[in-house]
């Protein structure tokens, strides 16, 4: 079986400016944050990002990496609004392609199945039709004659997802409550990269959870990154919950240019190892 193990840096080296990149997870849940942090450190720019957005989107917006954002929402879950995403929108800094969150699902599903579009009611009559003038409707060829939205396939150049466990061949498993849409992101993409909390030997994915949790199959995957804590500060249950204290600190820092610069210096200036050490120091502040 092939060994697809890579580092975050090697993944980012395979990406190019101007690409369309899908990011798995949902809101502030199981986001491939170590890969996002590697993107922040790169020279990549002008990205189109497709996501059920959380701090992944916020950080990429703050770093000026995003030209175009395809989304249904951006939220930190326990904190409703994402400060950097808001600032980017309010500055007119990103092109907004806003869909109903079910349309996003349908667009990924169409791409995963190599269909040009899938019909849906979701979006009819809403502002989504006005703000996405390229959206087309289609009339049902059957007796009902209903006029539905033809949700276009959301084809991705690359997908980044984070799961709990994976093997070196790219079979990857979620152990938490929800698979989200991660394998659809992988199937919609030319190249999918999976980070995980721990790489386990082939055949041992069943030791911690059911085989049904192996939603991402190796045929979908180009690269595997072992990234313990790789979803921090989003949740990665049952390995860890969202770091609510860190998330609050992130939001507080985002509200002020000086404090954001200090936050970046403290947490985002170095590599992933530096990040882990800085977070450990941040944790020890409360326990001291």
């Amino acid at each position: 079986m092939s060994n697809k193990l890579m580092t975050e840096g090697q993944v980012v080296a395979e990406l190019r400016s101007g690409m369309t990149i899908g990011i798995g997870g949902w809101g502030s849940r199981r986001k491939p944050m170590s890969l996002v942090r590697a993107l922040l450190r790169s020279d990549l720019r002008d990205l189109t990002v497709v996501a059920y957005g959380g701090p992944d989107v916020g950080l990429l917006c703050a770093a000026g990496k995003v030209r175009r954002l395809v989304y249904g929402f951006v939220s930190l879950d326990s904190i409703a609004l994402e400060p950097h995403f808001r600032a980017a929108r309010q500055a007119g800094a990103i092109e907004s392609v806003e869909y109903d969150e079910g349309m996003l699902y349908w667009g990924l599903y169409a791409a995963a199945n190599r269909l040009p579009f899938l019909p849906t009611r979701a979006g009819l009559g809403s502002g989504v039709m006005r703000t996405n003038p390229e959206l087309r409707t289609i009339v049902s060829p059957y007796g009902d004659g209903e006029q539905l939205i033809a949700m276009p396939a959301l084809r991705l150049d690359a997908a980044l997802v984070h799961l709990n466990r994976a093997d070196a061949a790219g079979n990857a498993q979620f152990l938490g409550p929800d698979p989200y849409f991660d394998e659809l992101f992988c199937m919609a993409a030319e190249r999918a990269y999976v980070s995980c909390e721990r790489v386990v030997p082939a055949g041992e994915l069943t030791s911690e959870g059911p085989l049904q949790g192996v939603r991402v199959a190796r045929w979908m995957v180009r690269g595997v990154v072992e990234a313990p804590g790789g979803a921090h500060f989003t949740s990665c249950a049952p390995d860890y919950e969202r770091d609510e204290r860190f998330q609050r600190a992130y939001v507080e820092a985002a509200g002020d240019a000086g404090r954001w610069a200090a936050f970046q210096t403290r947490f985002l200036a170095g590599d992933e190892g530096d990040y882990r050490r800085a977070v450990a120091a941040f944790d020890s502040e409360v326990h001291a």
């Binding site: 249904g72 995403f85 109903d100 809403s126 989504v128």
Partner: peptide, 15 residues
């Protein structure tokens, strides 16, 4: 293209 106040996004409300 440049709203005064950005909120969540339409979420699932249209559907």
């Amino acid at each position: 293209a440049r709203p005064k106040v950005q909120l969540l996004g339409v979420r699932g409300a249209p559907g």
